[in-house]
Design a protein around this nucleic acid. Structure first.
Lengths: 192, 192
DNA sequence: GTTAAAAACGAACGTTCGTGCTAAAATATC
DNA sequence: GATATTTTAGCACGAACGTTCGTTTTTAAC
């Protein structure tokens, strides 16, 4: 790998950490440069604008999410086991790996009312993410492991809002309490 | 009412709108001053710092939430009817009144990793809000309208994560679809 | 080892940020 | 209507913002 790509990866790694903690908008070129130990202009030249940087950061987040949550889960047996693994890994991702909470949630909330390239990209990634859940749920239905008459999109909504609840509660109360609630509701969703 | 309080109210009204759309952090003194039609320093002198302004804005949001959602709901019959009214008004509040989404959700996500007065205040308000739901749910249990063995805190978690799901989905898909999902899940929560 | 390309730097740009002042204008009190 | 108080404006500050520039250093290719 060339030097350029290497530092670019380094930058994005730091940028994602900062984004997780403080949000995509407060990500400043100067601050980011300081945190990776290089000059503002040197960093800037890798991306040609702040918008481009933000888009790249979200892409990096999506890449990490796929490799840490989606891909490993697919190794699991089709249906409920895979779905369960996905939930487990998602919690792990947002609990251990993303110190400041899921960057998709925070960036979405931040940008849902700011038209532009960044918002469009975030929305697209979010939809892709929900699509992954829907696909896993559909498989569980096909495999007759989910004896429900509900639509896939509604089940995905329940799964996803449960995640959101966990996300907020884990910062509001204790992580343990949030996790208990999350697991309990997930059980209910797949058992009805 | 004195002139001072009047303009202060005016400022907070504008500030809450901006916060709902763009988040509590992007609320700038200069921008806010322009939007209410007064000078930066003139506005600034009403609050002694930006932090104080942010706190006041959230207080104003809480005040509005109480008067638009909580108080009217209490006029409804105790138990499920009151809880239902609360949900209905909450949706209305975040759909019609708060153009850019619920300011509690966005500000919480924005500040959950930034220690300081603002975060503490947001957390406190958020807990108060959940407390209101829990109280309404407790009443429904006391009135034997909820034949569930679940704890109040867990039921509130379900109600609240359902709201979060609605919040995200209404910006991601259509408001109608989001609302359908929300209503359906709420029915399930109060019927099991 | 020389050379061409890529990467990083330092300085400066025009803006905007939050925050102090002081003075003028508007309001309230008597 | 005069006086005291509150409210607003104007101006300036240092810092940080994203961005551009020309230059120097580092890397890659031959």
């Amino acid at each position: 790998m060339s030097k350029g790509l290497e530092t670019k990866e380094n930058i994005l790694k730091s940028a994602l950490e900062l984004t997780s903690k403080f949000g995509l908008e407060s990500l400043s070129i100067g601050g980011l440069a300081k945190s990776v130990g290089m000059s503002k202009s040197g960093l800037f030249s890798h991306f040609k604008s702040k918008e481009a940087l933000q888009v790249k950061v979200m892409d990096y987040a999506a890449f990490k999410f796929t490799s840490k949550v989606i891909k490993p889960a697919i190794k699991e047996e089709r249906g409920i086991p895979r779905l369960e693994k996905m939930m487990e890994l998602w919690i792990e991702w947002s609990e251990n790996y993303m110190a400041g909470g899921c960057p998709f949630v925070s960036s979405f909330v931040e940008y849902d009312d700011r038209p532009g390239v960044v918002r469009d990209h975030i929305m697209h990634l979010q939809k892709t993410m929900i699509g992954s859940f829907e696909r896993a749920i559909q498989i569980a239905i096909d495999e007759k492991q989910l004896k429900t008459s509900e639509s896939v999109q509604y089940l995905a909504y329940k799964v996803y809002s449960n995640m959101l609840g966990y996300h907020i509660y884990s910062h509001l109360l204790s992580k343990e309490q949030a996790r208990k609630n999350f697991t309990k509701q997930f059980r209910e969703i797949i058992q009805t």
